[in-house]
């Protein structure tokens, strides 16, 4: 996992965005749900990969996950990753 370089997208031209849900807050909530579901899917895929890789190569020693401490570099990477993650999931809240 590593933070993605930020990019600026062009504006989308066309008619104004339609609103299918009368309540604007609810609309955002649904957008959050969509984004969240994609994040959870990525997590599930990673966990599945890990489990399979570990099973193929021999198991983790007991307690290894609980006792593991991230290095400073890994901590920084995780922080950036979480910042990106939060933007992806809750980005709908910033939309006009």
């Amino acid at each position: 996992m590593s933070a993605a370089t930020p990019v600026t997208l062009p504006e989308l031209a066309g008619p104004p965005r339609p609103h299918f849900i009368a309540d604007a807050g609810q609309e955002r909530l649904w957008n959050v749900v969509v984004a969240l579901s994609t994040e959870l899917a990525a997590t599930r895929a990673r966990l599945d990969t890990l489990e399979r890789v570990l099973a193929e190569r021999g198991t983790l020693p007991a307690g290894a996950v609980e006792s593991w401490q991230p290095s400073t570099a890994a901590g920084v990477e995780r922080t950036h990753d979480m910042q990106d993650y939060t933007r992806r999931v809750f980005g709908a809240l910033t939309r006009e």
């Binding site: 579901s37 899917a41 990525a42 895929a45 990673r46």
Partner: peptide, 14 residues
């Protein structure tokens, strides 16, 4: 990346 793929795949399933 695998994560990007997994997110895209989640949208196709949706």
């Amino acid at each position: 990346t695998p994560d990007e793929q997994a997110r895209l795949d989640a949208l196709t399933h949706l």
